[in-house]
Computed example of a mutant assay.
Amino acid sequence: MTAHETMIEIEGVTKRYGETVVVENVSLSVAKGAIAVIVGTSGSGKSTLVRTVNRLVPMTGGKISVGGRDIMSMPATELRRGIGYAIQGHGLFPHRTVAANIATVPQLLGWQKARVDSRVDELLTLFELDPAVFRGKYPHELSGGQQQRVGVARALAAEPEVLVMDEPFGALDPVIRGKAQDDLLAIQKQFGTTVILVTHDMDEAFHLGDMIAVMSGGRLLQYATPEKILTEPADPFVQQLTGTSDRALKLMSLSPLKQAMEPARPGLARSLSQDLSLRDALAEMIWNGVDEAAVENEAKAPVGSISMRRLLQLGKRS
């Protein structure tokens, strides 16, 4: 997989309802295997935009390609079977068991029963839901977090290359929400799925996104890496949405790298001194364009590593 290979290409997409413009001339591309998070306040157009990708909302103008194919060149049903879709509150069928819910799209695609059963069990196991216990349960017998996991498992069931998620964790309490986000990251990494996800929660955007799109009033204000959004907001609204990044960076300058580093990983090209502050480490990594660096002690021996993702998480927690 090449870094620049594009999976989702959104070009000049506009959506109007009568005279009201809900999405205005938005263009962005999502690389294969990346997570793009669209963030904005209520009414910013973010949910409408992602729903144009699987044609749940028809565009008024513009073009969208998924995997190099114009989405208008195929029947909507075919398009949607190839794109996983997960929403807030999970949208499970209440009168179907967990197994039947997850099997929905594979069955539509005509998979053999053995293959469907094995996929259901694989996904339940991945989400730490014992198949023997959960296959036959109904949605109302599950907790909110379990329902959400089944919702995401259903979206992933037919091995889609693209997963569209609209506020998928919005209804979960903060503790379960963090776990659900980590589940998503682990599973996305395992399958190499390309994800486009909507949230109003900037912390969630920083935690999950390889790229973040900030929308307001139907327009795209900035589409950039989390570190760019944090350090070079393109608009006062972006700065406001990320919180006072000055405060986060000031707090990062008081936190030593050696207290935040992760285990050492061989083969990292760039190294940083453990005596740097988190802010200085972030600045060095942005300057050198690296996502991960080794951490060395005074004797230049590797004692750990640090990733951009972890630094940004720590920065947002500040």
Rank of each mutant, 00 (worst) to 15 (best):
Phe206Cys: 01
Pro226Glu: 07
Val238Glu: 07
Phe206Asp: 01
Asp203Lys: 06
Leu230Cys: 09
Pro236Ala: 10
Glu232Met: 12
Gly192Leu: 07
Lys179Tyr: 08
Gly209Phe: 02
Leu208Phe: 11
Ile187Pro: 03
Arg177Asp: 05
Lys179Ser: 14
Phe191Leu: 15
Val198Ser: 10
Thr199Gly: 12
Ala234Ser: 13
Ile176His: 12
Val214Asn: 04
Asp235Gly: 02
Val238Trp: 13
Glu204Ala: 10
Ser216Ile: 00
Met215Thr: 11
Leu197Met: 15
Ala234Val: 09
Gly218Val: 14
Ile196Ser: 02
Leu184Ala: 06
His200Phe: 13
Ala213Thr: 06
Thr225Phe: 00
Gln240Phe: 14
Ile196Val: 15
Glu227Cys: 10
Ala234His: 09
Leu241Gln: 03
Met211Cys: 04
Asp203Asn: 10
Glu204Ile: 01
Lys179Trp: 07
Gln181Asp: 12
Thr199Asp: 11
Thr199Gln: 13
Ile187Ser: 08
Leu241His: 03
Val238Leu: 09
Lys179Pro: 00
Tyr223Gln: 07
Leu208Gln: 01
Ala234Gln: 08
Ile229Arg: 04
Thr199Phe: 09
Val214Thr: 01
Val198Asn: 10
Gln240His: 11
Asp183Ile: 05
Pro233Tyr: 05
Gly209Gln: 02
Phe237Gln: 02
Ala186Thr: 11
His207Asp: 09
Thr199Ser: 12
Met202Tyr: 14
Asp203Ile: 00
Gly209His: 01
Gly209Met: 03
Pro233Met: 03
Gln181Thr: 08
Asp182Thr: 04
Pro233Gln: 02
Phe237Trp: 05
Leu230Pro: 01
Lys228Met: 15
Arg177Val: 06
Gly192Ser: 13
Thr193Asn: 06
Asp183Arg: 04
Val238Cys: 14
Thr231Phe: 14
Phe206Ala: 01
His200Ser: 03
Gly217Arg: 08
Ile229Asn: 06
Val238Gly: 07
Tyr223Asp: 09
Ser216His: 13
Gln188Pro: 04
Leu230His: 05
Gly192Met: 13
Leu184Gln: 04
Leu184Val: 07
Phe206Gly: 00
Ser216Phe: 02
Arg177Gly: 06
Gln222Met: 07
Leu208Lys: 03
Gln222Tyr: 05
Arg177Tyr: 13
Leu241Thr: 02
Thr199Cys: 11
Ile187Ala: 07
Pro236Trp: 15
Ala224Thr: 05
Ala205Phe: 04
Leu208Cys: 06
Gln239Met: 08
Phe206Asn: 01
Gly218Ile: 14
Asp182Cys: 03
Leu197Gly: 03
Glu204Phe: 09
Ala180Leu: 12
Gln181Gly: 04
Ala205Arg: 01
Leu221Val: 09
Ala205Met: 09
Asp182Lys: 00
Pro226Ser: 14
Leu208Glu: 00
Phe191Arg: 13
Gly192Glu: 14
Gln188Asp: 08
Tyr223Leu: 10
Asp201Leu: 03
Asp182Asn: 07
Arg219Lys: 15
Lys189Asp: 12
Pro226Ile: 08
Asp210Gln: 06
Tyr223Val: 04
Asp203Tyr: 00
Gln181Val: 06
Lys179Asn: 14
Ala224Ile: 04
Leu221Pro: 00
Gly209Arg: 05
Gly217Lys: 10
Lys179Gly: 13
Ala186Pro: 01
Thr194Ile: 13
